[in-house]
Design a protein around this nucleic acid. Structure first.
Length: 688
RNA sequence: GGGCCGGUAGCUCAGUUGGUUAGAGCAGGGGACUCAUAAUCCCUUGGUCGCGGGUUCGAGUCCUGCCCGGCCUACCA
């Protein structure tokens, strides 16, 4: 098999919110595909980056009172931690706000200008005078100019379906400030896509470039007509790259975002001593984009046109997937189904989601439903009861006997699974992950059937049968080993555990062709635990509560203009009057940090204390005794974020050393309320 | 409004260019076994293939109308 050279990207997550289970459909799918290609021995590079520009990010930074750079910096850190914890392994993770990206954008822009593809003309737009910003359609509401329906966004009416321009809205209101926007005119720069029609049409017609539904969609919706010009610019204030020689004008985020794919590849090349042109201007190298169906047209119309303009290679294939629904419905904050990756990890291991998604993903754009009951059943019945069970039921014998020196007659079972190698590989390669999973589970069924027939538990009772027992173990573990290899792209942790037990790395697809022999077997400890639906339900319940709390807090801040009456009693502040004034320097002496509770346990001899171990990120942990026993159940605390006084002088207590203090409000006893940061905060961040 | 996609057993899905009594996994029912994480193995009950027309010797598969769901519809990210 000739070695392929494959560059793979996932869509760039927008640096304006945490990674949720919907995002993960894509990253997990891509990561599985990449791991598979690497196991097949192909030279594969997987790059991704945070998408950091645009009005929304500018506004978020403003709202939190920090610079855009600070905002996207902490977002990026959070995203990368989430990805790593779901075992998504990028070769390079960058940012669109990088010097490499700016330079590439400038080069591409210069070529577009030189080829006379950029046109400039005035555009009328709504402007928020209070916030001093132009308003994109999503930040304005008004009455539909056609049917008069209230509260419609700036592009189309969801009541009558009429599409219009934001300046046509009746009584428009800025959703940022609540003020009445004015109409202002400003020049914008347009990319003349129609001039690239032939390039795009040829590219779409290349076999393998697109799934048929994507090609149909493009032909039916765009290419049947004149391709409209694409507005590539935005007017200040905007967070992004300023256009050279055009002060006050910025590239629209969708211009510089996909260029981030190249920029991040470039960063990787620099770190590896590779040449960028070997990946982006090399006809022998493949380029694969994985994206969701909502951003198809950016990747399949503008992007190939831009690439062609700048004389880069066009993508080999754009893999488009559908959206995630939960229990058959759109993810919703109110239902608690808008689940953050971090929240998932507090309750369930990443391997289960990776496997479940794999069983449901094909090479199509159908939405994928995360059905909670099915999720639990599938994980338990496939992974625990079938696959891991194979090891679980014979490892004990294997530890006693080791593996035979010669592979025994197994009536063609190993050979069958070895022959399935290419069928399974073809399914992986085509993105038919659900088919690959089905084929692999069939192998697990066959192996379990073998064990039932061979009855090793009976052989183990007869000392003279030890040779036969060793043979049965050899067959079973080799059949299991093939399965572990085939599942390795999906379940890297299982791959490692299996490798350790078998004393051999399972990092190459071809290993499934030859049995492992003459090997001693380590001691087995459960590779996976059965999943309890209660854990999943708890995850949803907590998400629901957090979202409700966040929504309440949000509405409290946005309606804080005096219209709402404050009904809180003054009892608390009277009970504990304010302390004497302190200076900012005084406050600075107290180092408050966000921390995650790693473990919580009762201190039996203590009346009020719980012993907590909290993490400040990395391997920095603190042991803290907190007087919250009456108010909190230890099991409920594990995983949650709290605020601690991190530089408090350690204090030796009867039960051990306390290295900090957990912040809480309340009068004491059962009336104790731990402080939690809003979602987005990560352990180690200082509270200012 | 327009475009694309989907609608197959209780659930999640396979069904290649139309061809014999429509398949799998899970769930349900019965039995076996006891090595294994209430795991495993054997047998088994479930379907007017969204609805109505049409083409054909023959339609889940092709055409057409309708119903339901998802996405897109361009200075939205």
């Amino acid at each position: 098999m000739p070695q392929r050279q494959i560059l793979v990207t996932s869509a760039l997550p927008y640096a304006n919110g945490p990674i949720h289970l919907g995002h993960l459909v894509e990253y997990i799918q891509t990561d599985i595909w990449v791991r598979f290609q690497k196991m097949r021995g192909h030279r594969t590079v997987y790059v991704c980056a945070d998408d950091t520009h645009g009005t929304a990010i500018m506004l978020s930074a403003r709202k939190h009172g920090i610079s855009e750079e600070q905002w996207i910096g902490q977002m990026s850190q959070q995203h990368q931690q989430d990805f790593a914890d779901f075992h998504i392994q990028f070769d390079q993770y960058g940012s669109t706000h990088s010097s490499e990206n700016r330079e590439l954008c400038q080069q591409i822009w210069a070529q577009a200008l030189a080829k006379k593809l950029i046109d400039s003309r005035d555009v009328q737009q709504l402007y928020d005078p209070e916030q001093s910003t132009f308003l994109s359609d999503r930040f304005v509401k008004g009455k539909c100019p056609k049917c008069g329906a209230p509260d419609q966004a700036g592009d189309n009416c969801d009541k009558c379906g009429h599409t219009y321009s934001a300046i046509e809205l009746i009584d428009p209101v800025s959703t940022i400030s609540g003020s009445q926007p004015e109409i202002r005119s400003a020049p914008h720069f347009f990319f003349q896509l129609e001039k690239c029609r032939e390039v795009v049409e040829d590219w779409i017609a290349r076999p393998g470039t697109l799934q048929s539904e994507t090609a149909n969609y493009l032909r039916g919706h765009f290419l049947s007509d004149r391709l409209r010009d694409w507005d590539l610019s935005r007017t200040a204030p905007y967070f992004g790259f300023e256009i050279p020689n055009q002060p006050g004008h910025y590239w629209y985020v969708w211009f510089d975002a996909p260029v981030g794919y190249i920029a991040t590849t470039w960063q990787w090349c620099q770190s590896q001593g590779e040449n960028l042109n070997d990946w982006w201007r090399n006809p022998a190298a493949e380029i694969h984009h994985f994206i969701g169906k909502d951003i198809v047209y950016f990747h399949t119309l503008f992007w190939p046109a831009i690439l062609h303009t700048a004389e880069y290679a066009l993508p080999t294939r754009v893999h488009v997937h559908g959206f995630l629904t939960v229990n058959g419905r759109k993810m919703s904050k109110r239902d608690g189904t808008f689940i953050r990756g971090r929240k998932y990890l507090e309750h369930v291991q990443p391997a289960y989601l990776r496997y479940y998604y794999a069983t449901k993903l094909g090479d199509n754009q159908d939405d994928l439903d995360l059905n909670i009951a099915e999720f639990v059943e599938k994980v338990n019945s496939d992974l625990v009861n079938k696959v891991v069970n194979l090891v679980s039921r014979c490892a004990k014998f294997g530890t006693q006997t080791g593996l035979s020196a010669r592979y025994p007659d197994d009536e063609g079972r190993f050979a069958y699974a070895a022959a399935q190698s290419e069928v399974i590989a073809a399914a992986y390669d085509a993105g038919e992950l659900s088919k690959a999973m089905r084929l692999i589970m069939e192998l697990a069924d066959r192996a379990n059937q073998f064990v039932d027939q061979a009855q090793p538990w009976k052989l183990a009772k007869v000392p003279e049968q030890v040779d036969r027992l060793r043979d049965v173990v050899t067959i079973t573990l080799n059949l299991y080993r093939q399965i572990a290899i085939y599942l390795a792209p999906v379940l890297p942790t299982l791959q490692q555990q299996s490798a350790q037990l078998l004393g051999e790395p399972l990092n190459d697809w071809r290993l499934a062709q030859q049995p492992l022999l003459n090997q001693s077997i380590g001691t087995y400890a459960h590779f996976m635990q059965r999943l309890d639906i209660k854990d999943v339900e708890k995850m949803i319940e907590e998400t629901k509560q957090e979202n409700a709390a966040a929504a309440a807090a949000d509405s409290a801040t946005t309606t804080g203009g005096g219209a709402t009456t404050n009904v809180d009693s003054d009892a608390a502040v009277l009970a504990e009057p304010l302390a004497a004034e302190c200076t900012i320097e005084d406050f600075g002496k107290v180092d408050l940090r966000v921390a995650r509770i790693l473990s919580a346990e009762e201190v039996p001899e203590a009346r009020k204390l719980l012993k907590l171990v909290v993490s400040l990120g990395g391997d920095q942990t603190r042991q803290v005794f907190a007087g919250i026993k009456a108010a909190y159940n230890p099991a409920d605390l594990v995983g949650r974020l709290v605020v601690i006084v991190a530089n408090l002088k350690p204090r030796q207590m009867k039960f051990g050393l306390s290295e900090g203090m957990v912040c809480a409000a309340g009068s004491g006893g059962a009336e104790v309320f731990l402080l939690s940061p809003d979602s987005g905060a990560v352990p180690g961040q200082r509270v200012h």
